[in-house]
Design a protein around this nucleic acid. Structure first.
Lengths: 130, 130
DNA sequence: CACCTATTTCGATGGATGTCTATCCGAAGG
DNA sequence: CCTTCGGATAGACATCCATCGAAATAGGTG
């Protein structure tokens, strides 16, 4: 089952509950985003003007071993957030914008007409936990 | 350090790289979303018409022990995605829409002007997160 | 106060995960 | 070929995490 398909078929969280299969697929992608190093890698690739980044450039941006960076890139690639291409001796990674867009849509709030969405509620963000 | 603050100060991933501190904060929230059970819980609460859900209702929706559900609710609360309120014997959870909205904004693609790449640095002023 | 119900907290445990070193692979140049 | 260089894989290790059962807490009701 292709992860991007699952993302495309999953309604926004605020619209209706996810079923178990959708949740399993979506969770795999969010889990990939749940690491600071991977988030930074993704933002480096996503914000790069040319659209692609060489692995060596990414490795230089962290004080981590090269295999560790390679591992994180693999994770981001497996969930469909990045693709890679080898040219000559170097490997270039680039963003898969569709996946990122689907994730964003999944978290979208209902259109902010106060009486609209099923989950429109008067914001009570004051109460803090802990 | 308040997590919602970090989210508010973090630019979209496609705009510029996250620094280490931002990435650490954002990763905590995504990590909370990186579990299928928590995703389903969140979608149940977020899509509930009344806006709030009793713990007992959530527990009934899963074949997991009640302490396990309580643990997941605690995680979602600690990262600012849910709040809880006790009334009589029951505890009700509700969504914090601001946090979800900030996350969605973080993953937003740059305004889709076809000529620009997904990481066009010039079109950055458009996407604002509040 | 004693009891019941709803929920949280505690402690333990098996499995996943991030990181490292060492090693391997693939491409380019002698 | 042999070497070198960029990058991926393999294996090891420490830590984290989802889950459970047991116990503690809080509110409601006798």
């Amino acid at each position: 089952m292709e992860l991007l398909e699952i993302l495309e078929c999953s309604p926004p969280l605020t619209r209706e509950p996810l079923d178990a299969e959708q949740a399993a697929g979506v969770a795999r992608v969010f889990k990939a985003l749940g690491d600071p190093v991977r988030l930074r890698i993704l933002s480096i690739v996503a914000s790069r003007a040319g659209g692609e980044v060489c692995v060596c450039d990414i490795t230089d941006a962290f004080e981590l071993s090269q295999p560790t960076i390679s591992h994180h890139l693999k994770v981001l690639k497996e969930v469909g957030l990045l693709t890679s291409e080898r040219r000559a001796s170097w490997v270039y990674y680039r963003l898969v914008p569709e996946t990122l867009g689907e994730l964003s849509a999944l978290l979208t709030l209902p259109t902010s007409r106060p009486a609209d969405g099923p989950a429109s509620l008067t914001a009570t963000a004051a109460a803090v936990s802990r």
